[in-house]
Design a protein around this nucleic acid. Structure first.
Lengths: 195, 195, 195, 195
DNA sequence: TATGAATGAGTATTCATTCAT
DNA sequence: AATGAATGAATACTCATTCAT
């Protein structure tokens, strides 16, 4: 019960939770939520099923925490991409988005899949709605700064375009010309002066 | 000597299958595939669980048949929207798409969700991939006829845009300005002469 | 309702029952009783499931009738093997038994298997007990006529020997020297004068 | 740091498995394999259905493990009956066989029944075939040592005789003179000098 | 006589969750 | 903090049997 022990405990705790979360995300990304069992997650994380329930209330709670964590990480990274120049910022965001899509397609696949399951997971509804509004506001502000007329309307289309490109790529995958589309988007939205 | 004529039997079968399929699609669309039980489907269809297995090999087989049927119906409807004029055809398709989204959002949601569950529903993924390619070709051909330069590239963005609008609408729902976006799309792609 | 129709009906009836019984025996012999479904039997017999229940009260009733028929056929054949000379009769029976074993091993297999399921099928108990006693009496009488001392005791062993040979052959099958054993039995019991 | 020592866990597991196996064997021996439900076994063993599946992959796996265990036990016991003198060993085996038959007829019945269900329980058939060959070799060796001419042929008949006696006894049961037959077998094969 | 659509009771199996240690 | 034995509710699927026609 000395402070040292408490510290150590907190450390162990963090370590265990991290391993559980990683195992969960990886398995769920590969197999889907219902096809992944608590037993699999515990085994992959190298902990007992019981311990898992010390940290997470339920399987769904685990999913929520994992998803929230994953998105929080993305938010943080995106914050680092902001600059004083709107066009540069937009280009940074754009490149980041395409890089993520290319390097972690399975993670994006599961996140997108979950987005479609709004009615089944309440937390998804809240998160997805908030995220979408946030991105919309960000895009609007950037486009506005860049001098686009009807920045709000354009932002809506741009947001939809990003989502749609992800869908097409995640489904068609190897045959989808992601590089080409990325180039097109950057040229069209970040390099040209708006009319 | 048949106690019931073959036609009568076929009729009865069709009727039962239809009721089962409708019940299944509706429940699955609302609750998702795993959350929907065979018992629920049978009850909603007003038949016994056993009868369901006279017509469908398994729960997954039922899903497949229902999805294929649903998509076949859409194909047929779309075929009727073709005209001699590319711009008119595109406008028809566009209006049809937005009408579907508005009137049957749950169906679109479940179909898209299932498309993403590659490892679990290979057949849906295959169908969806083929459809996506088909739409891409159709859009390219239309845009080409309408005089767009780089019709292929533009078709890709347009396809992504349609998908993206759907996901945004399905998530944000009531707050999403679907009418406005529809108008914008039609104006931009179907009414203006390409540069 | 004319006599002619009744006759015809009876004929049809016989024909249908025969086909059902044959299909049932064949399927049950190959797959076992519980692994064989009424649907399979009906299909193989080319009749409807409903018709089957016009003739047989239940699946178990069908099994009983089929088994009884099969054994009755054997009885009839055996009756034709009787002669005035006990040694000749015994030899005939012996040869018949081995020939059956060789030509219809699957049928014997299922009958033997059923014999072991006394507690599960009441009718099996009755039939098997009666048969065994009948054979015992027959063998005793034959051995007695042939001059064996302690014909009853010897008959008991002989009966057990026949059963045991069947078991060994039906299990080991191809490697079992059935011909050799047959020859041995005939030589030992039918050809030599008892001491 | 384990909340329960590994040994303690192993003990608990062994205990549970034993109770399940015993319950399963007893019920299956009495009612047959398909007539015995998992629920019955679990209840008789005093555990939940779920626990049963912690230890056995399926109902059939449970059957296999139980059968293999049971036969391994018999092997061990028989090994203890071997002596330097062939006649004594044979007599020991003979007495053991009859005692088993008398005290555990249901177990013999079910094991033999299962042996005949080749297509459904391949593993039992394989085990039984191997056992039969093993017994044959053992009998041949013993008879050979005892000076029997044609020990191989005699062994075959003796093996069949044992099997046949079992089936006769299991069917006729109370009316079958098992004691008398046992005496006869011992006198004939173990006490007399071969000619 | 004959059919086959329909039933529903029955069964193996899975898995999130709990809790004694 | 950590374990894993144990639970039991939930669920897909089967199949003998019935009955309207």
């Amino acid at each position: 019960m000395s402070p040292r022990t408490d510290e150590k405990n907190a450390e162990i705790r963090q370590e265990s939770m991290k391993r559980i979360a990683e195992a969960a995300f990886e398995l769920i990304a590969r197999q889907g939520f219902e096809a992944t069992t608590i037993a699999q997650i515990a085994q992959k994380a190298g902990v007992s099923k019981g311990l898992l329930y010390n940290y997470y209330k339920s399987k769904e709670d685990l999913l929520e925490k994992v998803v929230v964590d994953s998105l929080a990480g993305a938010d943080q990274t995106m914050a680092g991409l902001m600059t004083d120049d709107a066009a540069t910022t937009l280009e940074n965001l754009c490149r980041y988005y395409f890089r993520e899509l290319r390097t972690k397609p399975e993670q994006w696949r599961i996140l997108t899949e979950l987005t479609f399951r709004i009615d089944q997971f309440q937390f998804i509804h809240d998160i997805a709605t908030k995220k979408m509004r946030g991105y919309l506001d960000l895009l609007e502000s950037l486009l506005n700064n860049m001098g686009f007329p009807d920045a709000r309307g354009e932002a809506k289309l741009l947001a939809a375009l990003f989502d749609g490109i992800a869908i097409q790529y995640l489904v068609i995958r190897d045959d989808y010309p992601l590089d080409e589309v990325e180039q097109y988007m950057i040229t069209k939205y970040c390099k040209r002066h708006p009319q």
